[in-house]
């Protein structure tokens, strides 16, 4: 490689770390610690389309910037939708934003759930906790293009019934044609919840799908991956058809800061969605 002079003319390179200004259009309190924000661009320049699986970097003024998946797909210029769980200083600052308040947005970044590869197939979506946020756009897309896919199975695990996201929408999914919805919680008092108690992979064991013609999309805590894969294997689902979304610390989202490395991958750029066989051996390494 010839490196005598850098080829890029400095003035034409747009600073990729510079956010655009957005405003909170709507704020829905999903659970005690989680909100869904609808964000509208403040200014006329067009924003890019956000596809299921992608994420934006959301900047809370003076506090910090964190990766947050799109919880609804959006077309060029349409408002962005993000579901944020308050777990630390930046996510808390974002979750506190009220309609009319401003924040910064960079993105979208990352790859997409390979839904298009599974046209005509059954779709199994497995979500744990906040992991439903990046998968909601997948479910919506399947339901929008109902005829293009086979049976839809949505399996969702949460800690407690009070921590379930998108309650009304879940009911609509349950009532949708050719759709199975399974929800399970880890703990409950038995007064507030009549549904299953236990772990998500158990739902997978009972789910109806044709293993040969199924795409499985999984997002949740990393410890959930192995039990689900194990169940998928029991059901004879080829593991190339399993896709997982991973997360690691992320500062720049454009493959320059180094933080999100996972073996050879930059999760921000090569992910966050990976075919399971591509990360299987890496997931076994501790503290990678």
């Amino acid at each position: 490689m010839s490196s005598t002079t850098a080829t890029n003319s400095p003035t034409t390179v747009r600073e990729p770390m510079l956010p655009s200004t957005y405003r909170v259009l709507r704020r829905e309190q999903e659970t005690a610690d989680t909100v869904t924000l609808t964000l509208e661009r403040d200014g006329e320049a067009l924003a890019a389309a956000c596809e299921p699986g992608q994420f934006n970097m959301l900047y809370a003024f003076g506090v910090g910037e964190v990766p947050i998946s799109v919880s609804a797909a959006s077309d060029v210029g349409e408002p962005l939708v993000h579901t944020i769980r308050s777990v630390g200083k930046t996510s808390a600052a974002l979750a506190r934003l009220k309609p009319g308040q401003s924040l910064g947005v960079r993105g979208p970044f990352g790859n997409v759930w390979p839904l298009d590869d599974y046209e005509g197939h059954d779709i199994v979506v497995i979500a744990g906790g906040i992991g439903l946020a990046p998968l909601r756009p997948v479910v919506r897309r399947v339901l929008e293009r109902r005829a293009s896919f086979g049976h839809l199975v949505v399996l969702y695990g949460a800690r407690h019934p009070s921590e379930l996201l998108y309650l009304e929408e879940l009911e609509r999914w349950r009532a949708s044609p050719d759709t199975t919805l399974g929800i399970t919680v880890d703990r409950t008092t038995g007064v507030e919840w009549m549904g299953p108690v236990g772990i998500v992979p158990r739902l997978l064991a009972r789910a109806r799908f044709d293993p040969i013609e199924t795409g499985l999309f999984l997002c949740g805590p990393e410890v959930m991956i192995e039990p689900c894969v194990r169940e998928a294997l029991t059901r004879k689902l080829p593991l190339e058809q399993v896709h997982v979304s991973l997360e690691r610390n992320m500062h720049c989202a454009i493959g320059l800061c180094g933080h999100c490395q996972f073996g050879p991958h930059f999760i921000c750029r090569d992910g966050p969605v990976f075919a399971y066989p591509d990360v299987e051996s890496l997931l076994r390494v501790r503290e990678l």
């Binding site: 770390m17 003076g62 506090v63 910037e65 500062h251 720049c252 320059l256 800061c257």
Partner: peptide, 10 residues
């Protein structure tokens, strides 16, 4: 080595 961190402050 190129790793960097981003810090926002007010």
């Amino acid at each position: 080595c190129f790793c960097s961190k981003i810090e926002d402050s007010s």
